[in-house]
Computed example of a mutant assay.
Amino acid sequence: MTLTAELYFSFRSPYSYLAIGRYRALTEMFDVDIALRSVYPLAIRQPDFFERNHPNWLGYTFRDMVRVAQFHGIPFAAPKPDPIVQDLVTRKIADDQPHIFRLTRMGQAAARRGEGLAFADEVSRLIWGGTPGWNEGEHLAAAATRAGLDLEELASEADSDVAALDEELAANQQALEDAGHWGVPTLVFGGEPFFGQDRIEMVLWRMNEQGLTER
């Protein structure tokens, strides 16, 4: 029997990027279906989060994400542009955010079609994998095509169905909190949350307990 799980994900989260390709590979190797549940990043949900953190938090996080990428052989670079407009000196989040809302809504539109995991993986590779100007030209369209989707269709839905999509995204966030966590990436399997890109082996162990089989 096919196992099912939900992956709570943010397009601004580098750790979400460092996890999603490995989770996608897991679904290709094993009989498990992982549904993407996008949420808005902390910068949107808690705009003062970065200002409240210890001064060392940001520097350590950058150092850690780079070495995680190196350890797993995952291409990694600072996004150009950042999906969130933020002053990295003051850590203040700008009021005007031209990228993250539409991008997250397109991710939810992809999830409606059952291709959220593939779309988020392909787009994250652009954002965090070193593609400058990932939001320009044909980059996003090509990523959507690789995920089996049409970007114009997703973008049109993201622009025309804002209220319903945002309601679904809010429901995703609530479901994450109901499962016992608040951050991303978190995979929920059998009602049990596994937070972080470093919990994939533990997820696999738990799935094996429930009869996970190879495809």
Rank of each mutant, 00 (worst) to 15 (best):
A78D: 05
E157C: 14
Q86E: 07
A5W: 04
I20F: 01
E136I: 08
G133K: 06
M202H: 15
L42K: 06
P55V: 07
D159R: 14
Q174S: 14
A155V: 05
Y23I: 15
G191W: 08
H181C: 05
D166R: 08
A109K: 03
G107M: 03
I200F: 01
V66Q: 13
G196S: 12
G107Y: 06
S124M: 15
I200C: 04
A179D: 09
F30N: 08
R199A: 02
T61E: 14
N172Y: 11
D31N: 13
A147W: 10
G129D: 07
F194C: 02
G21E: 11
G137L: 06
Q174T: 12
G148R: 11
M207F: 02
S13P: 09
R63L: 14
P41Y: 07
P98M: 00
A118L: 09
Q210E: 10
G21L: 08
A94N: 04
F76W: 12
P98I: 06
D166Q: 07
L126S: 03
Q210M: 06
G130C: 10
E51M: 08
Y40S: 00
Q46E: 04
R102P: 00
A179P: 11
D159C: 01
G21Y: 03
L151I: 13
I100E: 03
G133D: 12
E6Q: 15
L204T: 14
F62V: 02
A111N: 04
S10F: 01
T145G: 05
E201W: 11
R91C: 06
T186W: 02
T2G: 04
M29G: 00
L169A: 00
G137Y: 03
A111D: 00
A43M: 12
F49M: 10
Y23R: 01
E152I: 07
R22K: 11
Y40M: 13
D198N: 14
H99I: 02
Q97H: 02
R37F: 05
Q86C: 12
L3I: 10
V89F: 03
P79E: 10
P55E: 10
R37I: 08
A141L: 11
L3T: 00
A141V: 13
M1T: 12
P81L: 08
D161Q: 15
H139Q: 13
W57C: 01
P41C: 09
I127T: 04
L42G: 12
A110E: 06
D82C: 07
Q108G: 00
R105L: 02
R12N: 08
A147D: 14
L149Q: 09
E214N: 02
D31L: 06
F195G: 03
A143S: 09
